[in-house]
């Protein structure tokens, strides 16, 4: 018999948030303030991975676009700060905007912009499916990448260093703890929202579409609209994560949006398991800690890492969820 959703879904989320909330005090007690920085980075990528997983795990769409959407969010925060600092207005068609270093304004803007870009690219890529979809999202990711490279005014290939001061509801996000708690709050909101989402009417349709699109159509539901909305929502979440990264490090560059990053995000989702909302948080933590651990052992860390990814693909047929299903069936 299935466990109650309270235990199956909400308990892990609360546990994860509680463990993260304890990180600063533990790190300080152990004299390892660096750990807070690492944890913040994990939080940011966890947010992005949770966002991607709505599309990947629940929508069944293998998207390689999400690093690009992440980067769009980062650039929105960066460019807004650039204009505020330099005192030049940003011309958005007829509207001139002075820019802003206020993350309460620019983070939502980052989410909205990424959602808009995701929708635009979704409209084209969702006309296709399967391998075409994967390749198109990859190509769109590179399109965004080259767009960032072409922005000479904002650092081009070298990226955009934010010189102005940012503020977050009166706090300074370059302070380690402020940033950590900001990222943690965003993750909490994103997790709660996503968990509600997949149990909602919308979530049921999305998950059904991933299993059998033809059946969903025969039930009278046009799947494309739901897939598009999911792409937009997950784009918004990735944009938020990208904005957070830029806001914390005061830096964003095209390297943050290369398609390899999209691959990393997929690996995070698979590592943690596609079947739950919270799985990708564990995946992001594993991924980044593994990266940190391996790169401490050897400078050729990508070699063992690549082998781990290959092993994962060979043995976790269909991800952890697939593994679980096989165990259950056996």
């Amino acid at each position: 018999m299935a466990k109650s959703p309270l235990i199956r879904d909400w308990l892990p989320i609360m546990l994860i948030l509680a463990v993260f909330a304890a990180v600063p005090s533990v790190a300080q007690a152990m004299g390892q303030p660096f750990a807070i920085k690492v944890a913040s980075r994990i939080l940011v990528f966890a947010i992005a991975a949770v966002g991607l997983n709505l599309v990947l795990g629940f929508g069944g769409m293998v998207s390689l676009l999400h690093a690009g959407l992440f980067g769009v969010g980062g650039y929105v925060v960066g460019i807004s700060s650039y204009h505020e600092f330099n005192g030049e207005a940003l011309m958005l068609g007829p509207v001139a905007w002075g820019g802003s270093g206020n993350l309460l304004i620019t983070l939502p803007l980052a989410a909205l912009t990424s959602a808009a870009v995701a929708s635009l690219m979704g409209v084209v890529s969702l006309r296709t499916s399967g391998s075409y979809f994967i390749m198109i999202t990859l190509a769109f990711n590179q399109m965004l990448f080259y767009l960032a490279v072409s922005l000479d005014r904002y650092g081009g290939e070298d990226g955009l260093q934010m010189l102005g001061t940012l503020n977050l509801a009166g706090f300074d996000p370059s302070k380690r703890l402020v940033y950590f708690y900001a990222a943690l709050s965003v993750l909490a909101v994103v997790l709660i929202f996503s968990q509600r989402l997949i149990g909602s009417r919308f979530g049921m349709v999305l998950r059904a579409t991933a299993q059998n699109e033809r059946r969903v159509k025969a039930l009278g539901i046009p799947p494309i609209r739901y897939k598009l909305a999911a792409v937009a929502i997950s784009g918004a979440i990735c944009g938020l994560a990208g904005g957070l990264l830029a806001g914390g490090t005061q830096f964003i560059s095209p390297a943050d949006m290369s398609w390899v990053r999209s691959g990393d995000l997929i690996v995070m989702c698979v590592l943690g398991g596609l079947g739950t909302v919270w799985g990708p948080v564990l995946g992001a933590a594993c991924f980044l800690l593994l990266e940190l651990g391996l790169s401490g052992l050897t400078n050729a860390w990508q070699l063992p890492f690549g082998l781990i990814v290959i092993g994962m693909a060979v043995y976790l047929n269909g991800g952890l969820v697939g593994l679980l299903r096989r165990v259950r069936a056996a």
Partner: peptide
């Protein structure tokens, strides 16, 4: 339930739990 839900119009409802 999905089939019954589909009959009741669009499913752009993101928060209320269908369970």
């Amino acid at each position: 339930r999905l089939a019954a839900q589909a009959r009741q119009g669009h499913s752009f409802r993101f928060w209320a739990q269908i369970a």
